[in-house]
């Protein structure tokens, strides 16, 4: 995979380059601000761009740059990293796009397996959300008081939380110790209860379910 990095912390940037290379990826460029990353992506073929959210242009240059990259090269995957897991950042990420995009804590991609899994899922067109953030959203009082979401059973809530983390049906089954068929049944029930049965694309419905869930907690919270 051809990867470009924009991160203003030299130590973290250099460590990330070494880890990406150890994981078998090609780092085509490594810069310290959003404008330089844009210039790089304009001339180089990049599969995924990794951006620090809090970098120049301040205060949240990573988000602004990600928006511009998405407009310029919609096929380039985007992985936004931050020291903080913030709902506000997540909403901004969702505004940029719900496909080929991810938002994770910096230290959580510090392993070859997790890093590869995150990059592969983004390249496959998925959205990857930091699990700790998805979990917190479900556990907040506002998250439990979400109109249509109130109709969901506890199991369906668990499944939706894992969907919000961008997990596949197999991964959800593994996490909850249930069969893949049971996961599919729960997802069908979630779609029905959230009134998403009419959409033909399963992936699109998954994203809509997650958005409905996030939207509900945004309104109520």
């Amino acid at each position: 995979m051809r990867v470009a990095i924009a991160e203003d912390g030299a130590l973290f940037r250099e460590g990330l380059v070494l880890l990406l290379e150890a994981a078998g990826h090609q780092v085509v460029g490594c810069v310290d601000d959003g404008d330089r990353l844009l210039a790089l992506i304009a001339t180089e073929q990049v599969d995924v761009a990794i951006l620090d959210i809090r970098m120049p242009p301040e205060p949240d240059g990573g988000l602004v740059t990600a928006e511009r990259i998405r407009a310029m090269r919609p096929q380039t995957g985007l992985l936004l990293l931050s020291h903080y897991a913030e709902t506000h950042y997540l909403m901004r990420v969702l505004e940029i796009g719900t496909e080929r995009i991810g938002y994770r804590l910096k230290e959580r991609v510090a392993g070859v397996q997790v890093l590869n899994d995150t990059l592969d899922r983004i390249c496959d067109g998925e959205i990857v959300i930091e699990p700790v953030l998805a979990k917190r959203l479900v556990q907040t009082p506002a998250g439990r008081d979400g109109g249509a979401l109130d109709k969901l059973t506890e199991r369906e809530h668990d499944v939706l939380r894992l969907m919000a983390e961008g997990r596949t049906n197999n991964a959800i089954a593994g996490e909850l110790f249930i069969s893949v068929k049971a996961v599919e049944k729960n997802i069908a029930a979630i779609f029905t209860k959230l009134d998403l049965s009419g959409d033909p694309s399963v992936h699109h419905r998954r994203v809509l379910a997650v958005l409905a869930y996030l939207q509900a907690r945004r309104i109520d919270g």
Partner: peptide, 10 residues
């Protein structure tokens, strides 16, 4: 410390 985490990953 985040950079240290990458070092450990490596």
């Amino acid at each position: 410390v985040s950079a240290l985490s990458l070092e450990l990953g490596l």
